[in-house]
Design a binder for these strands. Structure first.
Lengths: 156, 156
DNA sequence: GTGCGACCTGAAGTCAGCTTTAGGTCAAGG
DNA sequence: CCTTGACCTAAAGCTGACTTCAGGTCGCAC
């Protein structure tokens, strides 16, 4: 049995690099689950480390906790996730990363031709205002493409 | 003369897509300058639209306002920025975007081989923990590479 | 000259994602 | 049994980038 093979919050913190405060926070937010000792202290299964690695990678590229939770929710509930489970998850995230990369490339190239050349015209600029739809949106309307607005991020 | 050719905050908001509150905020933060009417209302020069386009593009890819201000500070003070001025600015930002793109590509490929295959081992994972230096950093130490920590962002 | 929409200011509020603080409790070694 | 470091909770605090609010002013058309 690995019933005895549980980790304290300090151990998880040390191995994952997340401070205990973040681990508690993630638990409150429903990204992690723990068991408790009789006295109420947290005990973590080893599999939490894998989840944390996923969280770390996702946060690094700027994915918000809501989205991370959705991703993790796709993992099986009772049993330990299999290779296939992680693989499925990975495929969906790969698409997301590809999108982000494309957006950055487009922006970089746009900057070269647009800001770089000094022609930055608000009405014409493809980068800045791809379809000239800006005025139609309400006051305070956001220009950011939905994809880019998904999350405020550390990553970037 | 284009002395009479000034824009009200409402006009700038409409043309730039930034709400007036954001324009006032950017002014307080030193990203924008304005002249005032006798009665104290803001009047913007047309060139502010170009600055705002730059701000928009930068924010979109996740650059923080501090960095944006630094970028804009490189523009000439008295005269209207020339093509060469914008071009110089663009070159420095291009490098930044290239870095970000590379980081995302690395992460995507890392996810493919690391999370995707189910092997996610904290001690070994190159993506997660490139040099195993994690435990040596203080409590609460951040793993994000400095480049990725530059700014919380909308972009990405 | 009057009406009224656009504008002004300072201060407070918001949101994400955590961290910090205060005031205790647990668990394991000696 | 006692000590002591690790752990617990709730609540408040923080940063960045703005938005919202309250209460008042401007300026232009009629």
């Amino acid at each position: 049995m690995d019933t005895k093979d549980l980790l304290t919050i300090g151990e998880v913190a040390h191995r994952s690099g997340f401070p205990p405060s973040a681990l508690r926070y993630y638990e409150r937010e429903g990204l992690l689950r723990t068991t408790r000792t009789a006295g109420g202290q947290r005990r973590y299964e080893r599999s939490v480390l894998r989840r944390l690695a996923f969280i770390r990678a996702a946060r690094t590229v700027g994915v918000g906790l809501d989205e991370v939770r959705h991703g993790l929710d796709q993992l099986p509930d009772g049993r330990t996730p299999t290779k296939a489970d992680w693989s499925r998850l990975s495929r969906s995230w790969r698409g997301r990363l590809d999108e982000q990369i494309q957006a950055l490339v487009a922006l970089r190239d746009g900057l070269d031709s647009c800001i770089g050349c000094g022609c930055l015209s608000l009405q014409r600029c493809r980068l800045y205002n791809p379809g000239d739809r800006v005025a139609e949106l309400g006051p305070g309307a956001r220009l950011l493409p939905p994809m880019l607005r998904r999350t405020p991020a550390e990553g970037v």
